[in-house]
Design a protein around this nucleic acid. Sequence first.
DNA 1: CCCTTTTCTGGAATGAATCAAGTTTTGTGA
DNA 2: TCACAAAACTTGATTCATTCCAGAAAAGGG
Lengths: 143, 143
Amino acid sequence: MTSDFEAQLRAVSLRVTRPRLAVLAALRDHPHVDTDTVIALVRADHPAVSHQAVYDVLRALTDTGLVRRIQPAGATARYEMRVRDNHHHVVCRSCSVIADVDCAVGNAPCLTASHDHGFVIDEAEVVYWGTCPDCLTRSEGIR
Amino acid sequence: MTSDFEAQLRAVSLRVTRPRLAVLAALRDHPHVDTDTVIALVRADHPAVSHQAVYDVLRALTDTGLVRRIQPAGATARYEMRVRDNHHHVVCRSCSVIADVDCAVGNAPCLTASHDHGFVIDEAEVVYWGTCPDCLTRSEGIR
DNA sequence: CCCTTTTCTGGAATGAATCAAGTTTTGTGA
DNA sequence: TCACAAAACTTGATTCATTCCAGAAAAGGG
């Protein structure tokens, strides 16, 4: 388990440190969590880790492509380990929960904009907005 | 021009005020601007308008669907008047410039997620990430 | 095992956005 | 046309995620 993370870190020539292993473990067990939650999860095992360390680690991991940063409008940044498989996300408008959605229409179509204005496009990100099952039943209860 | 905005505001039963007309005019002339720029543009004509007023106005306008809020990951919120026509955006990774892109694959396909996890999806948002022409030539200059 | 570089700690600072209290303005109904 | 209640605005403080900074600790190549 841990050695797996170790290999991943070395593969992108990052040093292997406790905070980094802890962050990776937290993300493996809890997909789509925000920074505060990562900090809490990391401190459950390693109370001495500073918030700054977590921010630094998350940046290092995203920069090297080991984790992916998701930041839906109006929510704080979230992170996940599923990477390089072109999947997308559904975001709940009321509680900001995120779930994974595999690409609806294959890979290529999503990536082809009709007119790119001269931009060199390297990624097409799709965010589905809606209401999650929990919030649905909750709003029915109110009614 | 202004009377047009007046009609739009009344159509969603919002009172017609100077700050609101000024914000609408700013957005008409400058698509995809962030809040600070809106404030600056508004103050060019009406120096007394507070930043809070602009925030309130932008919220009122987005809530009523008159303008659309765009918030690409890692950038501050931006606003535009083009609304209800299912278009998407290209965002430059280095300078965060935004350009419009008409829906690449029609309306329906974009909106159909393969597995919705029980979410009720009401919108599919597509963000194309890349590099804008300006930043491209600039980086070539460095090389 | 030592040394250089990277990373981490602790604390302060930034900046977009929001909150709060009191004043002004809008638009309706007399 | 005028008065009044609701909505909107001003001013100023506050929150909160994120970043900056300086010094201490740890990683790993030699």
